[in-house]
Write a protein that binds this DNA or RNA. Structure first.
Length: 676
RNA sequence: GGGCCCGUAGCUCAGUGGUUAGAGCAGGGGACUCAUAAUCCCUUGGUCGGAGGUUCGACCCCUCCCGGGCCUACCA
């Protein structure tokens, strides 16, 4: 039995999980579930990556503390992962005491090894945000062609390159302030001194995919490795460096250490010894990550681990990016789909299978083609796999499976033997190959049913035994397929366990046929995907194209959002409970005894009226309201008030007091229409 | 500006320095009706992005070009 520790890259706490992230978490989760299913001891840890300038600035813009921001985002991330059946053994945060502890430990090892050097760095500084800026965080007018709103390093329009100080009208991308030059001392790690080790480790021992090893050899290791800048001056959201007050560890220093910190939390919860997992040959460590962060994990991270005498990863599995319809994900096209949005429209099993069917052990990008997505789910999962149970189960509902496994022409044995190559494909992360082989088993099973014609057998009472046998074969082949698919489709495995009254706990359940068990009533295990559902998801994800030039001229204050920060995620179902309607105010009268209330009568068209008390007295005159359209909550539970019962609520923005702004629909809206 | 990856049938992808380049889906024809318009049988379809080169021989090696995606820009 292998003992395996698995990580996925830590998602940054500055944004929500989207379909691109899920390539990695699903790939990892499938691999982990496979390892657990075959009986290996496997622990899967992850955490939110919470430090850095971007978090600091976001928090300021939202008017909340960094801690609040990262706590909210962690909650959202964990909900998204759970929604996709991604099961971490521990999900931590880089802003944890455990992480600080391991950062200090590795840091002192780097110091002891004499690898830390100090150098002065001159950088652009944003005096308003009070923070240093990378070149990319400065924008201005291109000095060559005059194109507006270009980054501080080169021009997208004419391709010219320059330094940020050459930009005309340079501004901070965060605050719009004019940046200035400032110098500060930074701490660097001299990894050139570990060149021999890094060359050996990256080029030998199968720790990396071949293309990754080649890339490193050609791109980094052919020249002296530059010192790695691992500190940032205050203010910075992160951990202050103990022996360098006023300096903080750069987010990329403490992020991978978060793998250890998260493991530590798991160990503490389970009475495990941390050193058995990170300082022992008996544990294999596997990292899964995207190609953009290759060098952090294949040069700096091994260098840190080596120096601190901590276990090196056995394998770093690097994957490509997600494209949708062959293109980069786009917010304006609606292909930048958040995990939460997907879950409102589609079953997570669909995406799990689709990605599995496309993932290989290589670094290639993965394309999500939406038409193919629909076709593949309907054809493979519903048409081939679930169909097997669907066409056989009801014939044996009364009898259960045969007492002895009948002659099936060697089909079960063949598929059992296929389990070995399927398992190999899983273990090598070649899920595409595994899925192809599993579907081949499903094809053979459908051919078998076609040939055996249970629908003919059932018409002849003398063939009852034969009918039961045929269905026993069909259901066993189905179950075998479900075992093979269990890492990808855990819910299907559970449903199958219920149908056949036998849990699926181990890969080896695919090796012996199941006989003599009762068969439960068959219910649909997975619905076909309707293209309409996919369209709805894309429509829900589409954001109008932001015109950068125009956006720059708006100068909306961040205060309203800061005063009332965004609330937690609301699912579509929750939102759908609120029935918002267009309504016409047909009567409005003062309530003399009340200080804030007006009594409004709303028409939803036809005879439908709602009597509503609204707290807008003194802001709107009753006469001016009659005839206008508003948006109301039409299904709000009626509420008894001092002056009568209020049957709804009209929607308005503003802080209250004199600041109340009723919402109006655009022209053409009709009373009674629902707001979606 | 530097670099990486990809470009094989309509779509998504396998594939090996060597006989007639494969699969799934889609398309066409037929069968069946147990099943979520599912299944089964047969079948159309590719000058392997383009141009050179190496080789007895290249889709697979080299060069250049074109197209697509991505990373990075001296805090790699």
């Amino acid at each position: 039995m292998r003992q395996i520790l698995v990580t996925s890259a830590l998602p940054y706490a500055n944004g929500h999980i989207h379909l691109g992230h899920l390539v990695e978490y699903l790939q990892t989760d499938i691999w982990v579930r496979f390892q657990k299913l075959v009986g290996n001891r496997c622990v899967y840890v992850c955490a939110d990556d919470t430090h850095g300038t971007a978090i600091m600035i976001s928090a300021t813009q939202q008017g909340i503390t960094e801690e609040e921001l990262i706590a909210r985002m962690q909650k959202a991330h964990m909900a998204d992962f759970a929604g996709f059946d991604i099961e971490f053994d521990n999900y931590g945060s880089t802003n944890s005491p455990e992480n600080r502890e391991y950062c200090a430990e590795i840091w002192s090892a780097l110091r002891r090894a004499g690898l830390v050097v100090e150098k002065e760095v001159t950088q652009l500084y944003d005096p308003v945000a009070g923070t240093f800026l990378a070149d990319r965080q400065v924008k201005g007018t291109c000095p060559k062609c005059g194109a507006a709103n270009q980054y501080g390093d080169n021009c997208d329009k004419c391709g010219a390159t320059y330094s940020p100080s050459e930009l005309k009208n340079p501004v901070s991308a965060f605050t719009g302030a004019t940046p200035e030059n400032r110098s500060a001392n930074h701490l660097f790690v001299n990894i050139e001194r570990l060149r021999d080790f890094l060359t050996e480790w990256t080029q030998k021992g199968d720790h990396l995919q071949p293309e990754v090893a080649n890339y490193l050899a050609g791109h980094f290791l052919h020249e002296p490795l530059r010192d790695w800048d691992v500190s940032r001056p205050a203010p910075y959201f992160g951990f202050e460096i103990p022996d360098s007050p006023g300096n903080y560890w750069y987010v990329w220093f403490d992020a991978p250490i978060g793998y250890m910190a998260s493991t530590r939390q798991w160990c503490d919860r389970h009475g495990e010894n941390f050193d058995d997992w990170w300082r022992s040959d008996k544990t294999e460590i596997h990292h899964f990550l995207g190609k953009d962060i290759t060098y952090f994990h294949t040069l700096f991270w091994p260098a840190m681990l080596k120096t601190a005498k901590i276990s090196l990863p056995k394998k770093v599995h690097i994957h490509g990016f997600l494209t949708v319809g062959g293109e980069k994900m786009s917010k304006s096209k609606g292909t930048f789909v958040r995990a939460a949005t997907y879950l409102e429209h589609l079953n997570p099993a669909y995406l799990r299978y689709y990605y599995a069917s496309k993932l290989t052990a290589r670094v290639d990008d993965l394309d999500l083609n939406l038409d193919e997505f629909v076709a593949k789910i309907n054809s493979d999962l519903v048409g081939k796999v679930v169909n097997l149970a669907s066409r056989a189960a009801k014939f044996v509902k009364k009898t259960g499976l045969s007492a002895a496994y009948p002659d099936d022409g060697g089909l079960f044995r063949q598929a059992a033997a296929d389990g070995r190559t399927i398992a190999e494909a899983y273990d090598e992360c070649d899920f595409n190959r595994a899925m192809r082989q599993i579907m081949a088993v499903a094809d053979r099973a459908n051919q078998y049913v076609e040939h055996a014609q249970p629908w003919t057998l059932r018409a002849d009472a003398a063939q009852a035994q034969r009918l039961q046998d045929v269905c026993t074969v069909a259901l066993n082949l189905f179950r075998q397929i479900v075992v093979y698919l269990a890492p990808v489709l855990p819910r299907l495995a559970d449903q199958t366990a219920e149908l056949l009254n036998r849990p699926i706990r181990h890969w080896d359940e695919s090796q012996e046929p199941l006989v003599g068990t009762p068969v439960s009533k068959f219910t649909h295990m997975m619905k076909r995907v309707e293209p309409k559902q996919v369209d709805a998801m894309i429509a829900a994800s589409a954001e109008p194209e932001a015109d950068n030039a125009a956006a720059a001229t708006f100068d909306d204050s961040p205060e309203p959002l800061a005063d009332e920060p965004l609330t937690g995620v609301c699912t579509f179902d929750e939102f759908a409970k609120v029935d918002l309607r267009v309504a016409r105010i047909v009567a409005a009268e003062d309530v003399p005894e009340a200080t804030k209330l007006l009594h409004l009568t709303l028409s939803l068209g036809g005879e439908k009226r709602l009597s509503v008390f609204a707290g807008i007295k003194g802001v709107y005159e009753p006469e001016s309201l009659v005839g206008r359209l508003v948006i109301c909550v039409a299904n709000l539970a009626p509420r008894k008030m001092k002056f009568g019962t209020s049957e709804g609520m009209i929607a308005a923005a503003g802080a209250g007091g004199k600041e109340i702004y009723l919402l109006s629909p655009d022209e053409g809206a009709k009373p009674g229409q629902r707001v979606h």
